[in-house]
Computed example of a mutant assay.
Amino acid sequence: MDGSEEPLADREWRLIREEAWSGAMNMALDEVAAETAAAGGPRTLRVYRWEPSTLSLGYRQDPDTVDWDYCEREGIGVTRRPTGGGGIYHDSRGDISYTVVAPADELPGDLVESYHLLCVPILDAFERMGVPARFAETERPAAHQPACYLRELHPAHDVVVATAGTERKVSGNAQHRRTDAVVQHGSLTYAVRPERHLAVFADAGVTPAAFRERVTGVADHADVSRSDGVERLEAALADWADATEGAWTDDELERARELAEEKYASDGWTRRRPGRR
């Protein structure tokens, strides 16, 4: 399929407005949305908050990179994503997250092309917020590999704001490409909390000042409240796919709660070693 086409508006899309869920439930709901889309149900656009604040680990991330004692002491949840990359601290007030889910055969097979298509509404949302965001254009070496926002920038899926000749990351996006569905989820930083973001990692070796040199948030560039930012992201997503407001079915919520308990909240999933399935 030609990624320049607009194959979305003639499909059934639902927008699920911002909800607050635990990290395990957020990942379970993404999986359930993929099952629904693959079974011929609606494609899903969702915006969500992490409650409590949560560290989401990349699929292959070593659990030894986490300061488990700090997370437990501070009431920070920990889960593992089905997508790659490093860990992301999702602050319950400083992060705005989204997911786009559609059948695999409706999206480009090329990974970069797919990212650029599904990030169209994300860049639109930043524009609506008054934030001059764009895909990364320059390479920058990793400062701390276990932390997603401190890894090298990737022009396919890292969104940055360029100021004074330096690109600072404002959004990271990742895809889980199943045989029957594609799940793209991402994190938009609203407010940067470098001390908390670094403290969830064991031996990060990066100062808060150095973190701020690489990461920025909506609040640094625009006079927009978090709730307004959420509304503008929801509007951008809805306009992009001509989506109608929707909700989870009772069956989807029951299935998600089962997945959250059995998989995404389990030590077997969250603390598993790289290479183990």
Rank of each mutant, 00 (worst) to 15 (best):
residue 44 T to C: 08
residue 46 R to G: 02
residue 59 Y to E: 03
residue 186 G to I: 04
residue 156 A to G: 11
residue 137 E to K: 13
residue 273 R to V: 08
residue 207 T to F: 00
residue 77 G to S: 11
residue 188 L to F: 05
residue 121 P to R: 10
residue 157 H to F: 15
residue 87 G to N: 07
residue 166 T to S: 14
residue 154 H to P: 00
residue 167 E to H: 08
residue 131 V to F: 10
residue 20 A to H: 12
residue 241 A to E: 03
residue 25 M to F: 11
residue 196 R to P: 00
residue 177 R to S: 09
residue 49 R to N: 06
residue 209 A to R: 11
residue 53 S to F: 05
residue 4 S to V: 01
residue 169 K to C: 05
residue 75 G to S: 13
residue 269 W to D: 04
residue 22 S to P: 12
residue 69 D to K: 07
residue 138 T to F: 13
residue 90 H to G: 04
residue 204 A to S: 15
residue 6 E to Q: 15
residue 139 E to K: 12
residue 23 G to C: 01
residue 208 P to S: 00
residue 24 A to T: 14
residue 136 A to L: 01
residue 37 A to N: 07
residue 26 N to V: 08
residue 181 A to N: 05
residue 15 L to H: 04
residue 91 D to T: 00
residue 159 V to H: 12
residue 86 G to S: 10
residue 139 E to L: 08
residue 273 R to P: 04
residue 110 D to V: 09
residue 258 E to G: 01
residue 52 P to N: 07
residue 230 V to R: 04
residue 220 D to K: 07
residue 20 A to P: 09
residue 236 A to M: 10
residue 42 P to L: 06
residue 276 R to G: 07
residue 143 A to G: 00
residue 24 A to V: 13
residue 158 D to E: 07
residue 9 A to D: 02
residue 165 G to V: 14
residue 194 P to K: 00
residue 35 E to I: 03
residue 63 P to A: 06
residue 217 G to P: 07
residue 230 V to I: 15
residue 56 S to I: 03
residue 139 E to S: 14
residue 36 T to Q: 13
residue 103 P to V: 04
residue 212 R to I: 05
residue 143 A to F: 01
residue 211 F to G: 03
residue 208 P to W: 00
residue 220 D to Q: 05
residue 158 D to H: 03
residue 65 T to Y: 08
residue 102 A to M: 13
residue 120 V to P: 00
residue 3 G to T: 03
residue 77 G to E: 12
residue 120 V to W: 09
residue 29 L to T: 06
residue 270 T to F: 04
residue 221 H to W: 15
residue 193 R to Q: 00
residue 30 D to F: 01
residue 59 Y to I: 07
residue 236 A to I: 11
residue 256 A to H: 11
residue 277 R to Y: 14
residue 206 V to Y: 05
residue 118 L to W: 13
residue 4 S to Y: 06
residue 153 L to H: 06
residue 239 D to I: 07
residue 1 M to F: 05
residue 2 D to A: 02
residue 133 A to E: 06
residue 224 V to K: 01
residue 146 P to K: 12
